[in-house]
Design a protein around this nucleic acid. Structure first.
Lengths: 237, 237
DNA sequence: TCAAAAGTGTTCCAATTACACCCATGG
DNA sequence: CCATGGGTGTAATTGGAACACTTTTGA
């Protein structure tokens, strides 16, 4: 717009790096968690470690969905995990912060190259999740989604937007059980909804609603070993 | 996944081209239209012309939203047009069709480079739309969204997904008036909804609903020069 | 006076909300 | 027998769906 045509328009002849970042949600019966990684460290020098959402460059011949699946499978051995693309983040300066420069210079073939990222979010059953060493990550850990530390790049914004999208989809498609074990009680499910939506729900109304949607089905089985009336167990239909 | 580590993982060291494609919707009181362009032609040889949705590579230092805005402004001089990012299309073979190879070899600095595109859709008031010559396009024209010819690349899929997203957002956010002139009647608005949603609506219920949402406001003005009872005019609130 | 679209209300049913007590179990 | 969470119903309100006739204008 502001360029005069004395200079040719700056076509992006260098290309861009394209990455996929996965906001992995997990639920521990009390808090909604997001999986963070420590950015991997060079073997030689020591960088100030930063936290980030797991992500990696998209490989040649790999679709975006495949890249997201790969990233998830490098972190755990789970299959069939819920994954959804939710937004592309393409600010030209999104990796230009001082805090991110050294890491890029260490790990990227072309550290000056612009990086576009496609955001996915993913729902995993925390009970079954066993972290694995991933090529792109150091240690991994879970943090409360309502208490996220300062992250690398624009990852705080990415997590925030993922949460908004998750709320939307929870209401529309009732995908909550993806975050719970195979067998769960309606109280667990309700608590999950309350924490994701960040508001209290009425027990009787919640049950009526969930049962009407027919996304879950009652098992012929009850909770065991609890110090109160054991609850009916449900699983996804 | 299937790679053994005898070969290094094929990192995308070439980078990708990143483009933005805009599905521009317009409404002519009868049909919902999509703006297509003829792919631009080289001055020398003559290619079989293909149709496509307007789009262009994202420039250096340009965000995705800015690129989408620029593409739209190169096609028309309208400002303040409704624009929304809706999906990233990243299949590694999305531009590998035979039909697209010659065009890429003619117009791209790196025709072999993988191209990722970010899909936007846009709502314009057809009444105010005056096409302009755009750097990336030959002729432009409008076609019925329910009768789209075969397009370049994966643009048929892009248009289809844009329509699904538009339907969603029309119901949720009542953005329909973005496709109508400043002043419109409720019958026009209803017809627009019917065509986008592809189903008939009840007149009385439609009016009750729209007025309850308070997204439109009645003007002190009526239709003129119609051969029936003139309708109340409305504008967006 | 006719044709054409504008405009308007009511009834019925389904969904949403608010609300409080008894029950089954383990310790 | 007590503490803990599990489990249940009803009434009031609100929103959605179905449905048909009268009005205003220009020709």
């Amino acid at each position: 717009m502001s360029k005069k045509n004395s200079e040719p328009t700056p076509k992006n002849t260098l290309g861009m790096d394209v990455s996929v970042d996965c906001v992995v949600f997990g639920f521990d019966n009390d808090t909604l968690k997001v999986l963070l990684i420590e950015q991997k460290q060079p073997d030689t020098v020591h960088l100030k470690t930063q936290n980030a959402v797991p992500g990696d460059l998209v490989l040649d011949n790999e679709s975006l969905d495949e890249a997201a699946k790969r990233i998830l499978q490098e972190l755990t051995s789970l299959k069939g995990i819920y994954l959804k693309q939710f937004h592309a983040f393409g600010d030209p300066n999104r990796v230009r912060g001082l805090k991110d420069q050294q890491w890029l210079r260490t790990f990227r073939v072309n550290p000056e190259r612009r990086v576009l990222t496609i955001g996915y979010y993913s729902l995993v059953k925390l009970s079954e999740f066993k972290p694995k060493a991933a090529s792109f990550a150091g240690k991994t850990y879970w943090v409360d989604v309502y208490n996220i530390p300062s992250l690398a790049f624009d990852h705080n914004e990415i997590v925030h937007k993922a949460l908004l999208m998750l709320r939307h989809e929870l209401m529309a498609d009732h995908i909550g059980f993806e975050l719970l074990p195979e067998k769960f009680t309606l109280s667990q499910l309700q608590k999950l909804y309350e924490i994701i939506l960040d508001k209290k729900l009425d027990k009787r109304n919640f049950r009526k609603n969930i049962l009407r949607t027919e996304t879950v089905t009652a098992l012929e089985e009850k909770q065991q070993g609890v110090l109160h009336k054991p609850a009916q167990l449900f699983s996804k239909k």
